[in-house]
Amino acid sequence: MSTFTQKGGFTDLAATTRVRLARNVRGYTYRGLGLGEYKEIADKVWTALQSAPAIASDFTMTEVRAGSREAAALVEKHLISPDLARKGGYLIASTDGGAAIMVGEEDHIRLQVLGTGLCPKECMETARRLAGLLESQIQLDYDEKLGYLTACPSNLGTGLRASVMLHLPVLAAYGGLPQMMSWAGRQGFTVRGAYGEGSKATGSFFQLSNQITLGLSEDAIIDKLIDAATGVIEAEKKAREQLRTRDEIGLSDKVCRAAGTLKTARCIDTAEALECLSYALIGLQMGYLRGVPAQDIMAAEQAVRPVLLGGTAGERDVKRAAFLRAVSEKLEVLD
């Protein structure tokens, strides 16, 4: 089995990297398609993958049933969009979840590659390889001037949306976000709360992604993303150091209490779990805690969400606490 999930650096501040390419198949419109047409397109994608048997053997194709529980779980895992979960379509994904091709989004095909930490280059390389495989077998909507054609003009050209999920609790808590957002905006990037509107418990995760897809090459977009992400990471680190200077006791108190809660709680809701995990990440990065890799805490961030745990609310809180105790077993407070 091959690994499609990429790995990168800055794991204590960058949770995940995602590269997504939008493509449309020639001969189909972008609206009013039914499941039958999406099945035809999914079959084309599947057949194209079979031309590279070594790669194809790692992929499985599943129907995403509109509004199903499985579809909701795929959304939580960032494998499909909420839109696809609602409408239904097809998902062709690698066994490790690192590479996924969604059929039936706003665009016929969305190919995405995921990684942990900051790894846009690595993700792009894999995405390019997979896209090349599809393109060698499937005629796509492409225009010499506008590039790859997409339903929304904001994806035209490269069809590339590259993003990094950043953990920015101190910038968020002390009002540094608007300034950082406008800085990112001037670089051609947007910053969004990771779990969108309507969900309060975001755990201070923000997604930085390119806004411009046309007139820049894939490599230029990726390089700019790395620069922008590094800039934001530096800003968060600086804000943390300022906080340490201002109120070291207050900060270390919160970090150490969070570690205690993670290691001992018997019943914990999502909001408190996310808050504690957030402080644990700060503690690991700032040298108050050690013993657990930051990416394990990042992964726990995802795993404690209700849809993935299942069961009733009460059962989930107990399950969540047990899971967190296991994750934080080796977490140590440094004096």
Binding site: E144, L146, Y148, P153, S154, I212, T213, L214, G215, L216
Partner: peptide, 20 residues
């Protein structure tokens, strides 16, 4: 004009399908 205001460009740069 919409693409131009939104993207700051109307000319694709970057990769193309092999046949192009």
């Amino acid at each position: 004009p919409y693409i131009h205001t939104r993207q700051g460009s109307t000319a694709h740069v970057g990769s193309a399908p092999a046949q192009e």
